[in-house]
């Protein structure tokens, strides 16, 4: 399934990209995606699907836009 993955802030220096279309196996979870793109599992982060927060165990669906961000704190 095709999904658009957006990586935010300094996490882009882990993944090597800030935005990319990825072809993922069906039922890939958020946690699996984060590992696939090279972000250490223990790195604090917030992940959103189409602008809304999701949990690591949530499954990604065809056409989703997934954004992975560090935990920002508003300066």
């Amino acid at each position: 399934m095709k999904v658009l993955v957006k990586v935010i802030g300094p996490l882009i220096y882990k993944t090597g990209f800030s935005e990319k279309d990825l072809d993922l196996p069906p039922r890939t979870t958020v946690a699996e995606l984060v590992t696939i793109i090279g972000i250490p599992a223990d790195r604090p982060r917030i992940t959103t699907r189409n602008g809304k927060a999701v949990l690591p165990e949530d499954e990604i669906e065809e056409g989703d836009k997934i954004a992975v961000s560090p935990i920002y704190s508003g300066g």
């Binding site: 935010i8 802030g9 800030s18 917030i46 959103t48 809304k52 954004a67 560090p70 920002y72 300066g75």
Partner: peptide, 15 residues
Amino acid sequence: IQSTTGVLPFCNEVG
């Protein structure tokens, strides 16, 4: 590396 400017795409993403 990006300092506080890094938060802009997050804000854009979540409205």
